[in-house]
Design a protein around this nucleic acid. Sequence first.
RNA 1: GCCGAUGUAGCUCAGUUGGCCAGAGCAGCUGAUUUGUAAUCAGCCGGUCGGCGGUUCGAAUCCGUCCAUCGGCUCCA
Length: 645
Amino acid sequence: MINITLPDGSVKKHEAGISAMDIAMSISEGLARNVLSAKVNGKVQDALLPINEDATVQLLTWNDTEGKATMWHSSAHLMAEAVEQLYPGVKFGIGPDIENGFYYDIDFMDYAISDADLPKIEQKMQELAKEKQTFSRKAVPKNEAIEFFTKKGDEYKLELIDELEDGQISFYESGTFTDLCRGPHLPNTGHIKAIKLLSIAGAYWRGDENRKQLTRIYGITFPKKKELTEYLEMLEEAKKRDHRKLGKELEIFTFSQRVGMGLPLWLPKGAELRSRLETFLKDVQRKAGYQQVITPHIGDVNLYKTSGHYDKYGSDSFRPITTPQEGEEYFLKPMNCPHHCEIFAAKPHSYKDLPIRYAEFGTVYRYEQSGELHGLTRVRGFTQDDAHIFCTPDQVKDEFKSVMDIVMTIFKALDFKDFITQISLRDPETPEKYIGSEENWEKAERAIIEVAEERELETVVEYGEAAFYGPKMDFMVRDALGRKWQLGTIQVDYNLPERFELEYTGSDNEKHRPVMIHRAPFGSMERFVAVLIEHCAGNFPLWLTPEQAIILPISEKYHDYAEKLLNLLNNSDIRAQIDFRSEKTGRKIRDAEINKIPFMLIVGEKEEAEGSVSVRKHGEGDLGAMKAEAFVDLVNTTIEQLLNA
RNA sequence: GCCGAUGUAGCUCAGUUGGCCAGAGCAGCUGAUUUGUAAUCAGCCGGUCGGCGGUUCGAAUCCGUCCAUCGGCUCCA
């Protein structure tokens, strides 16, 4: 007999060899029907696998992330089986579960495959799922595994096997499909009730662009049809928040083929919004002791040779600009830091001057592969809200803290709640990859971690993700479709001060190397605005939105009063317009709602007589009448609350 | 850059197996209407059907090629 501990802490005695499924059955049949896999002593495995010793067992269902993973990974097998039956002879790469569904990388050989084939595969999957095929696990000696896939002619699986140790190899067989796989899998394919193959894409084998490109099919499955429908509806909803769609509708930005791909054009409303963001940050930075600087858009090629960027990126960036006569070479500025280093170097510094903080909304240009461009989130010309702090190693922690406060101030003012804070540290295995003294690294890494703790920030720590020149902290957010984008970043840098031979005189009258901190709370104005649009679905915070209110006169008779009102609003720094069209009020309201204008001020006979406005709030409806001055107060206090909360 | 898809008016889309001057709604313009919480009516304007080349008596439709966009892959100082 063995002791099985369940998540609620209860311990039950069972025969050795019992499976998680048997345990579920002993609790209730309904539960057993829903069990997808089980976590045994912390490891996820097949629900049908025998348990031979004392263990803690957690039954996993669709409600558990791991349960979904089991479902989706098994779905990848199911898809592979369907594909193999429809296209005999194809070869398989890897087929994992992912955050939302699964994919399988397949070498389709001579079959020309496209979206049009997906429904056929889906249908086959449905048929196979109905057969309730079981997944049988078999431990296989390495030589047998090699023999199997040699016979099958699947060089991808052979490559994977080659990297595995003998004794650790298992096969899973479901229906007619046998795969090299660690598992775990569903008790049977019958759990897969709703299937949708979403897209088809090329994917390099093992992510290496020098190797063969396989065909990747993405899909997702659910235990209920209804959930699939809901998921697809959710995707549709997400598309409506897409900043490319909203950015166009709200006239924030546009692109032009003539101007060039990846080069955004900010429309008046977008430019206004952006400059408001910039003013806001400048203000915060001024209070935090930053000085604004301005540097040109191109720089001598030697600047980037000194900074080291030429060696690293020179070959895959925009080609240099050459002068007609002297044959000088200039690069479009890919980053602002070398320029700021030269500003620092322009005069000698004492330790008493430090920290020095140079800030610039610096527009930079980077060559991005054409397939990479994506709305405002991935462009070829963008403006960083850049700043570089030059400080002593001892000041790193305080500076880091103050930068983080700036980031938090911004996120609060814009109501950003769902962000991920990632701390990137050295890979302790390969210290030789990093520049800078052990002592300084140690100091900086500890400072970052401590600051995060002091600020009670939830963080993800990634080892080996640090830049070669220093540790960093990044702030990531998701877009409407769940894709992760990096926004703000704070990076410690020991490299550039070295390369530019920056120095300051210490209290000991000796020369010392400053430490540099790169930081950009927004990251880039382009990407930030893109993500902002998707976060608020185009309903910008009141202080930021291009048009805060629109006055809707009931008829021409009230145009004079509307003008008077507009004057009052403008004098109170409220951005507003009047809808002079001879349309019905319902129409004017509808258009204002569509344009996501926060406040609609309806004025007619009553309002004119009383000096009032009837306020309708976007998305909420009629707030009733109030004095015009009361409305001004309402706007001002709302903004105050957002910015100073 | 690679794989796949898409490309008809400013926007959203029709356009059957190749066949009359390529259609609609919205937006825009003009006029009428003077309006009370999500679409007033009428008329008009607007398209080298992404570009180029080919097949054909005839191409938005078929083929080739280039460009752009979308979904991924790779990349991202």
